[in-house]
Design a binder for these strands. Structure first.
Lengths: 138, 138
DNA sequence: CAAAAAATAATAAAGATTGCAATTTTTTCA
DNA sequence: TGAAAAAATTGCAATCTTTATTATTTTTTG
């Protein structure tokens, strides 16, 4: 849980940058650029949306953050790499992170079959969460 | 290969619709709305981009088509469901479809751990293809 | 503490997607 | 077959997310 995220080498330390990293650390699943903007606004930290986008781009390039798109959404989400594989409930939209991603078992198979050198992956699973299953028993 | 795609029940048969389905059937990997537009233009079929978007939305809702976003691209791609899991080369952008997706083996595990009723999934793997590995031996 | 480099803010611009009103095409059924 | 009704398409405007730009502010360096 307590990831020790620091601003990557070669980049300056600014309060905006640290605030963005803090929001990403606390987030329980991938969030939108605007979510970061609003969360910081709540805390009284005024920041420009473009600063958020610029920093997210940098953090993604540096590998500290993973960008993803979710089912039927036309805007990107950002998360720390350990939150990049998730289940989404089609009814209520709940997002549940997949820990211990079973992907590694596939990896070898994929390397063998396709010859790719694999550097990353992202898995999105859709379904209906237990609560919504109970609600909609029809 | 020869998927038998038909316009879903309750929708009218139009040449635009059939043309869009044909392009999707022939595509080897997920493509952009604009790719469909250009492919049809080549064939002399003049169609409006908004018609393409409207139909893609309908086909996605009906489950005939899967929408996805690719690494560092800010526009959606569309494909038949059997092409939704793929490898992307980070160097040359080549896309290779993953057949016989090993996901089913995980499915049971995910159901057990999270209680979700699973309806779908999508896997994107990044890496470097064999050709680019050879080129960049440095 | 002053100069140089980097980052931020604010706004404009770009690009993808959706909405809308008018027109055209399909379907229906008399 | 051939109106009439329903649905779909067009063309364009509007919207929304993301990127680019430029002036200003903040950090860093020595």
């Amino acid at each position: 849980m307590a990831e020790k995220l620091t601003i990557p080498k070669g980049y300056r330390k600014t309060k905006q940058r640290e605030a963005i990293l803090e929001v990403l650390e606390k987030a329980e699943f991938p969030i939108h650029a605007e979510d970061i903007y609003l969360k910081l606004k709540e805390k009284g930290i005024d920041i420009s949306l473009s600063t958020i986008y610029r920093n997210l781009e940098m953090l993604t390039k540096e590998g500290l953050v993973v960008k993803s798109y979710m089912m039927n959404e036309d805007k990107a989400r950002f998360a720390l790499p350990d939150k990049k594989n998730y289940l989404v409930c089609e009814k209520c939209g709940k997002i549940v992170i997949i820990d211990n991603c079973p992907f590694d078992k596939f990896k070898e198979e994929l390397i063998e079959v396709h010859g790719f050198e694999i550097t990353g992956h992202s898995i999105e699973v859709y379904g209906i969460c237990p609560e919504c299953q109970k609600k909609n028993e029809n």
